[in-house]
């Protein structure tokens, strides 16, 4: 991968983080932490890996992306608006009454593939889409971003079992492994253990990467395409709140509002990346 392509993706990631701040604004609660930690992964999917066409959002051949940790939708809204699915001016209306940018992803929003928000369901929906691709002999691939706290949900493990049973090599699960959940660090709250080993034990191919290193991310995404007969999992080590100094690794910004000062600081932090 050429250096300037990586640079371009990093520039996009910065735009996505700015978009997240647009969504959150001032004195408006929002899931800053998990959106910032997912930002580089979301960027690599939308601007590097996925074959999508904003002009034709329903193209049957398009790759699918499901944000199973739906609360991080601010990153997705930022990416979709950057791609032109809807106007950037909409971002500021996120979560306001009447806006089509709801608190959690809904299919009525252009570019959103599944309703999520109640944690634990997105990977199963991805399994359904991957099965449909096989049935219809289509080549599209399905990418699902999961939270590490979300991995506590039993349904995730039902989906993991199901995906390997059906040899879904067109399905990729990406764990945003920021090691935090809503109430604190997973190590103190509820540790789900060695995620990579668990995926492997359930019959998946799995890799661990730095989820803020664009080269790492795209190399891993490329590798998943070489795998035959197995679903792929990427465990992406990330930092909750990544890019916003006071929110990094700080779970009180899991879902919180920003004061005017904090908002300005956050904008400065992102600008200086």
């Amino acid at each position: 991968m050429e250096n300037n392509k990586i640079k371009e993706l990093e520039r996009k990631a910065k735009i996505i983080r700015e978009g997240i701040l647009d969504c959150i604004g001032i004195d408006k609660k929002g899931h800053l932490g998990g959106s910032m930690s997912s930002a580089d992964l979301v960027t690599a999917l939308y601007f590097y890996k996925m074959r999508i066409n904003p002009e034709n959002p329903d193209d049957p051949e398009r790759d699918r992306f499901i944000l199973s940790k739906g609360h991080s939708v601010l990153a997705q809204y930022a990416a979709l608006s950057e791609l032109g699915y809807f106007s950037k001016s909409e971002l500021k209306r996120t979560k306001e009454f009447g806006s089509f940018l709801q608190g959690h992803p809904e299919v009525r929003t252009p570019g959103i593939e599944a309703n999520t928000g109640s944690l634990g369901q997105g990977l199963s929906i991805g399994v359904g889409m991957a099965l449909a691709a096989k049935l219809d002999s289509k080549n599209y691939r399905v990418y699902v971003i999961l939270g590490d706290g979300e991995l506590c949900e039993g349904q995730i493990w039902e989906a993991i079992t199901c995906a390997s049973f059906y040899n879904l090599d067109n399905l990729v699960a990406i764990v945003d492994y920021n090691q935090m959940q809503a109430s604190g660090p997973i190590k103190e709250r509820y540790n789900t253990g060695d995620i990579k080993a668990k995926f492997e034990a359930f019959g998946w191919k799995a890799w661990e990467i730095d989820g803020h290193n664009m080269t790492d991310i795209i190399v891993a995404l490329d590798k998943t395409e070489q795998v035959k007969n197995f679903p792929s999992a990427i465990i992406a080590y990330t930092i909750k709140g990544k890019g916003v100094s006071f929110a990094e690794n700080n779970y009180s910004f899991h879902n919180n509002s920003l004061t005017q000062e904090q908002y300005e600081q956050a904008c400065k932090d992102i600008a200086s990346i």
Partner: peptide, 16 residues
């Protein structure tokens, strides 16, 4: 205990 019941978690929307 069903907390944040009804529409009281206004920002998060329908799922919550």
């Amino acid at each position: 205990i069903g907390s944040s019941c009804g529409l009281s978690d206004a920002g998060d929307g329908a799922t919550h």
